[in-house]
Design a protein around this nucleic acid. Structure first.
Length: 471
DNA sequence: TGAAATGTTGGGGCG
DNA sequence: ACGCCCCAACATTTC
């Protein structure tokens, strides 16, 4: 029996429930459809991830089939073409992903072809989790407590083997998809930073678990220390399973290799990923609208000039610019800095969170609809369990607190390399002599602040007042 | 998973 | 010895 394995955000062999089911049934025909909605950095990642996955399948005599078109229509056509009577896939918990899944199921039902779907993307099934009132959780902590206390995620499933497939359907060529940038080739920094694919994911995970997770609870807040897991893009493309992360971490804590405080903090971050997906399943409108309805009339100013300066990392606030340049160069930004730059765009610049979200979508290798939506709304103060609006990060204090010695800033904003620690986070306050010694001419080598912190803060609070009473 | 303003406390200088 | 002021350090509240 030939089973079609429809792949999407599950580009791995280990702990892939749909794959294991298909393999248990007989021959597996893995199919991946060209996704039309990704950002540039994600396409770069996808190219390499698919390339690696195709190699993994090829080792077992199986070809990864690439196709373009509507999955519901083409999967059905493929079934007829190769005489397959079963399709399996792992569910994707987003509006688009769930709609696609439904469409495929319906198309197959009409043709009397068996279709099975699995959860290989999340620890917990969003549709099954409710609070005591029977409504969806809207606050992270009770949600996560409920998950941890009442539900035990199933253990990861080992990958066994695949039967070689004789007769393969036609596949498009990955190179024809044109996922890689050509001119200019902006992907060098990405290639230097990342190894897409399951092997790269496992390697990063082992490094983290053997080393960096110690001190994670404290160290995760300091962007110049490499103390975060760096797994986000691997998780986005499903190159590693959250169940594996859960079970490996539990095991490491049980054996005393990892402190409970660090291990649980890391798992709580995986919990935020679960929570974002969960919110999107229960409140699909948050992809385009503020969760908190009061924000429908928020007086955004949406200055194109400020947005542009933010995107290019030329705001004049070193910690903000460092983050935006790290993003552009590597397709990634440290979590603490993401909060700072997002707060700056939405509050200091009064640019709509959607504009920031769009930029992240295009430039992040870990771009994920659920995380992107929930996190931008969280920072902007309009999301579920959001930071209060008036929590306006002071980019100077945040820099001094989380990059005390300016290591991160100097790395990404080299024109400030010679600035002393005392003024590296606020170069405009340095005296003439200091600036001259550091070789910095403000407005020429490095921009003056595009907004004044105190003024911008006051303006943001005033804007909030405008919607506070209305409802 | 803030920041800034405001309030409180306590030690030291000094008349 | 005592009250008074100053102000740092910490705590609370407000945004």
């Amino acid at each position: 029996m030939k089973t079609i394995l429809w792949l999407r955000e599950d580009l791995r062999l280990y702990d892939n429930l749909a794959l294991n089911q298909a393999a248990a049934d007989g021959e597996v025909i893995p199919v991946f459809f060209y996704p039309e909605h990704l950002g540039g950095a994600s396409y770069w990642w996808l190219h390499h991830s698919l390339s690696r996955l195709a190699e993994q399948f090829a080792e077992h005599g199986v070809t990864l089939i690439l196709r373009t078109g509507d999955p519901a229509r083409v999967v059905l056509k493929l079934c007829e073409e190769i005489g397959s009577t079963k399709v399996v896939f792992n569910r994707v918990y987003s509006s688009r992903g769930m709609a696609q899944g439904q469409a495929v199921k319906q198309a197959l039902q009409g043709a009397d072809i068996e279709c099975q779907s699995f959860n290989s993307q999340l620890l917990f099934e969003p549709g099954k989790i409710f609070n005591k009132q029977g409504t969806p959780f809207k606050v992270f902590t009770p949600f996560w407590k409920h998950c941890c206390a009442q539900l035990q995620p199933p253990a990861p499933q080992a990958f066994t083997t695949l039967k070689p497939v004789g007769d393969q359907p036609d596949s498009e060529q990955l190179s024809d998809w044109g996922l890689l940038p050509t001119r200019p080739n902006w992907a060098q920094g990405l290639a230097d930073t990342w190894q897409p694919g399951e092997a790269g994911a496992q390697q990063r995970w082992q490094e983290f678990l053997n080393d960096r997770i110690q001190g994670y609870k404290e160290g995760r807040d300091f962007p110049e220390r490499e103390q975060t897991s760096l797994l986000s893009p691997h998780l986005t493309f499903g190159e590693i399973s959250p169940r594996q992360l859960w079970h490996d971490t539990q095991e490491a804590m049980a054996s005393g290799l990892v402190d409970a405080s660090n291990g649980n903090k890391f798992l709580a971050e995986i919990g935020w990923r679960e929570f974002s997906r969960y919110l999107l399943v229960h409140f699909p409108q948050i992809e385009t609208e503020a969760f908190n309805q009061k924000f429908a009339d928020f007086p955004w100013k949406n200055s194109a000039k400020l947005l542009k300066a933010w995107q290019k990392g030329e705001t004049g606030y070193p910690i903000v610019d460092a983050g935006m340049r790290e993003l552009w160069h590597t397709g990634y930004m440290h979590n603490r800095v993401r909060m700072i730059v997002a707060s700056f765009l939405t509050k200091h610049c009064l640019v709509h969170w959607q504009s920031g979200m769009d930029w992240f979508w295009d430039t992040l290798v870990d771009a994920d609809v659920a995380n992107n939506t929930a996190s931008w709304q969280w920072v902007a103060g309009c999301g579920a369990d959001a930071a209060p609006y008036f929590r306006i990060f002071n980019p100077i204090l945040q820099g001094e607190k989380h990059d005390k010695l300016g290591v991160y800033v100097r790395r990404w904003v080299p024109e400030l390399k010679k600035m002393p620690n005392k003024t590296i986070h606020q170069p405009w306050t340095a005296d003439e002599e200091t600036l001259a010694e550091a070789g910095v001419k403000l407005g020429k080598d490095y921009p003056r602040p595009i907004v004044d912190h105190a003024d911008a803060r006051a303006e943001a609070l005033a804007a909030y007042q405008a919607i506070k009473s209305s409802s």
